[in-house]
Simulated assay, not measured.
Amino acid sequence: MSTTNTLNSSVTSLITEAISTASTYTEYREQMRNLVANNKSTGEIQSDALANYTMLNDKRMKRLDKTTKLPDATISKIKQVTAKVTWLVLTESWCGDAAQSMPVMQKFAEQSSNINVKVILRDENLELMNHFLYNNTLSIPRLIAFNEDTQEVIGDWGPRPSKLTKIVENFKAKNGSLTPEFKQELQVWYNKDKGNTIIEDLTQLLALK
Rank of each mutant, 00 (worst) to 15 (best):
T137A: 04
I140L: 06
F171S: 07
T137H: 02
A83E: 15
T150S: 14
I167E: 10
Q106K: 11
S76Q: 14
I154D: 04
V153T: 12
I120R: 00
T91E: 07
M102E: 11
T82C: 13
V119D: 02
I140Q: 04
A109D: 06
I140W: 05
S113H: 05
W87V: 14
S113E: 12
M105F: 15
N135Q: 10
F182P: 04
L138G: 03
K183F: 05
A173H: 04
I115A: 07
N125R: 02
P180V: 11
P141L: 01
L186H: 02
L121W: 00
V81M: 09
P141I: 00
E124Y: 01
F108P: 02
E181T: 05
Q151M: 12
L138Q: 11
N135K: 11
L126C: 02
A173L: 13
V89L: 13
E152M: 06
D97R: 02
N130M: 11
K107M: 03
I144L: 04
E92N: 08
F182K: 00
L128F: 02
L121K: 01
L138C: 07
F182R: 00
W94M: 09
E152I: 03
K84E: 15
N125V: 01
R142W: 05
Q184A: 11
W94S: 09
V85W: 09
E169M: 13
E92H: 08
K79S: 13
I120V: 10
P141W: 01
N147W: 09
W157T: 10
L178K: 04
P161M: 01
G96P: 15
S93C: 12
I120S: 00
D97M: 04
T91H: 04
G176F: 12
S93I: 06
L128C: 00
F146C: 14
I115Q: 04
I115N: 03
N125T: 01
E127K: 00
W157K: 03
R160K: 09
D149P: 13
E92A: 08
L164T: 10
K166C: 12
P141A: 00
A145I: 14
V85I: 15
E127P: 01
N175M: 06
E127S: 02
W157L: 06
A145E: 06
K118M: 08
N114V: 07
S112F: 07
K79H: 13
K172V: 15
P103Y: 06
S113Q: 09
M129A: 13
K84G: 15
R122F: 08
V153Q: 04
L90M: 15
E110F: 07
L121A: 02
M102W: 06
Q80A: 15
K163A: 14
C95F: 13
F171W: 13
S139K: 03
F132L: 05
C95K: 04
P161E: 00
S162Q: 12
C95P: 12
K183N: 08
A83S: 15
E124R: 00
E185Q: 14
F182A: 02
L128P: 00
K174T: 12
L186Q: 06
S162T: 15
S93F: 07
I115T: 03
T137Q: 03
A98I: 13
L138E: 07
H131F: 11
K172M: 11
L90Y: 05
T150L: 12
R122S: 06
E127G: 01
T165Y: 03
L178Y: 11
T91M: 13
I115F: 05
N175R: 05
S93W: 03
D97I: 04
V81I: 14
